[in-house]
Nucleic acid binder design. Structure first.
Lengths: 212, 212
DNA sequence: TTATAATGTGAGCTTTTACTCGCATCACGC
DNA sequence: GCGTGATGCGAGTAAAAGCTCACATTATAA
């Protein structure tokens, strides 16, 4: 009953590695155009230009394809955030918030439709250990950043900041917003506000929200 | 090709109204235990103790069942929020934020699993006009509350507050949190922080987050 | 009671879809 | 060249799921 979500076999030759990549890209395009409901193994194979047999050589189930895509997405987010944090070693909290918010925002903006669908898919899949581990690493990363800046309750703050940023970014991008800078300012305001820091630049045009 | 998501016919007698309710409740239970993937028309009918034929008499498709459940959920949230806003007529912004946050939190806590699944379903369904209207009314309500309290950019602030509250509440409840009061304090902090107001009560035990 | 409309039934039709398997083709070491 | 394992193929299978329809039962009104 329990189906594996990991690849059936590792591709050994270049040819087969390309086949895997082509299959994943085809699945991505289908998800972007038709959503989760449009994703069928036959169709993925067709769009990819390979046979179903080849597909099942590397992915033991439809869910395995989704799981692999989600792994890739999560890994890239984690790497981006780690790199971003590196650039603000020793700098104050607001700078750290800035780069992390920017990193996660960039991440939402590459193939936004795909990211959304994969997040939904992730909730329906029985999430795997390695995926939980990646999520945990992100939490750890953010918690560390906050702890180093003497934020109390860093673990909970990390959780909350990730969740609220995610909620705001998702909603905005789903709503078709494209003004990256405006969205960034709002995310920044929310995050700094939660942390009890006043967002600066309140004098500028994109400025204050509260009472005039 | 386009399938209707509205009930096929209105139930005229008491008996059939009960049948409708029983069907919706059965669907809810299935969603809670097995998620979207477990929802099949045959199974809904079986759990409800009615025949598939009866089901299709009132719901022209599986999606129509989901749409009806979503409508119910949204309507109840809107009504709760409207009632909450009524109670703080003429009171300051922080009080208004309080009651609205509490209302939406309560709303997440009744059958939390069901609410989550329905939200996912809503994204996959081609969302209907009447659902968009309900969402719009909520936006209008919150925008009005903010405008009356002289919040600049009230429309955008309403959007952002709804989105970030939703993100935080969803994540927390999905993570199994049950301490309603603690969660409320964090939501409140996030919302007031975004609005540029300091969260008071910073002296208490659940208090300040920023640097010690 | 009886006519009529509303409601309820469930076997089964139809379509879709995940997945298999026997065979063909290709790459690479000898 | 040639043998062996890796890769690729796609018609076909079996199961699942959405939905219909001819018929049975129940309620309402005359």
């Amino acid at each position: 009953m329990n189906q594996r979500l990991t690849p059936r076999k590792q591709p050994r030759q270049k040819r087969s590695q390309e086949t895997c990549a082509i299959i994943l890209e085809a699945a991505a395009r289908i998800l972007e155009s038709d959503g989760l409901g449009g994703l069928t193994t036959n169709r993925v194979a067709e769009i990819a230009g390979v046979s179903v047999g080849s597909l099942y050589q590397y992915f033991p189930s439809k869910e395995a394809i989704l799981a692999e895509m989600i792994r890739g997405l999560r890994r890239s987010l984690l790497l981006d955030c780690e790199a971003a944090v590196e650039t603000v070693r020793g700098r104050p909290l607001s700078d750290a918030v800035d780069v992390m918010v920017r990193a996660s925002l960039r991440h939402h903006l590459v193939r936004p439709g795909l990211a959304r669908v994969l997040e939904r898919a992730e909730e329906e899949l029985p999430l795997e250990e390695d995926l939980k581990a990646i999520k945990g690493e992100l939490m750890t990363l953010v918690t560390g950043v906050l702890e180093e800046r003497d934020v109390a309750n860093a673990g909970q703050a990390a959780f909350d900041l990730i969740a609220l940023s995610h909620g705001l970014a998702s909603a905005a991008i789903a709503g078709g917003e494209t003004d990256l800078e405006n969205l960034f300012q709002r995310l920044r305001r929310a995050a700094l506000g939660y942390l009890g820091l006043q967002s600066d630049r309140t004098g500028s045009d994109a400025g204050g929200v509260s009472a005039a």
